[in-house]
């Protein structure tokens, strides 16, 4: 390892930061469980999908392929396109790991690289360690599995209004991650604003409607971060906002 720095974050810090992610995951995975049951997938299979994949868009697309009797090639290509953004996130997060991240722990923790877990880990001040990362993954993983099971087993136990309100939890958390640094740094602000504007174009301009949401995120994120690096290069003393 070239990094000799160590990070002070505790396992419990990770657990605490994982709670809002878990809350959001409960509602999202709950709807996934309902969708799986609706397509005639067994509770066991639905649970197995969630416990081995831990991703929303990819699972929903995969479920569609299984239900429609698609080919394995189709499955592989779909997962590649939708989930390729995780490769970008993995590379980005490697720049914030302390020396506790051995190959074994990288094999273990990379399984939990979801949009939300990445976002929270990347938003931490300074480097992170494996204790924090495992803590951060644990609650979202349990909630994702539990929500899937409950949704598949008993789709209608949560009142609609509560289900609906839980859907916004993840986005509230995202705002809490990017608003404070965006207020302090014109670079971060510009990158967020540009990426959001581009994402609106993909959503509302009919020509782009065929582009999958996973692919749209890759295009927006790459363009905005390249522009940010060109126009607002960070100075040395701003290492961690």
């Amino acid at each position: 390892m070239d990094s000799t720095k160590t990070s002070d974050y505790k396992f419990t810090d990770g657990l605490r930061d994982g709670i809002p992610i878990g809350l959001g995951y409960l509602s999202v995975s709950f709807s996934f469980g309902i969708a799986a049951a609706g397509k005639g997938i067994s509770i066991f299979s639905a649970l197995l999908i969630s416990m081995t994949n831990l991703t929303s868009a990819g699972q929903l697309a995969g479920l569609g392929i299984i239900a429609a009797g698609g080919t394995l090639i189709e499955m592989i290509l779909t997962q590649l396109v939708i989930n390729m953004r995780y490769a970008l996130m993995s590379i980005s997060l490697t720049q914030k790991l302390d020396s506790s991240f051995t190959v074994g722990h990288r094999l273990g923790t990379s399984f939990g690289m979801t949009d939300e877990i990445f976002a929270v880990a990347a938003g931490k001040k300074g480097d992170i360690n494996v204790r924090y990362m495992y803590g951060l993954i644990l609650i979202p993983f349990i909630c994702w599995s539990l929500g899937t099971f409950l949704g598949a087993a008993a789709g209608n136990i949560l009142p609609d209004m509560l289900k609906s309100a839980l859907g916004i939890a993840i986005y509230g958390m995202f705002l809490a991650i990017f608003i404070p640094p965006a207020r302090k740094s014109v670079g971060v602000f510009s990158v967020v604003a540009f990426s959001a504007a581009m994402s609106c174009c993909f959503k509302y301009i009919p020509v782009f409607s065929g582009i999958s949401s996973g692919f749209s995120i890759i295009i927006c994120a790459l363009t905005a971060s390249v522009l940010g690096a060109l126009i607002f290069p960070k100075k040395e003393d701003e290492a961690d906002v």
Binding site: F178, V192, S195, A196, S199, A221, L222
Partner: peptide, 12 residues
Amino acid sequence: YYVPYAVLGAMT
């Protein structure tokens, strides 16, 4: 450094 913020902006 900008990737996480760009990802969050596009996803939110």
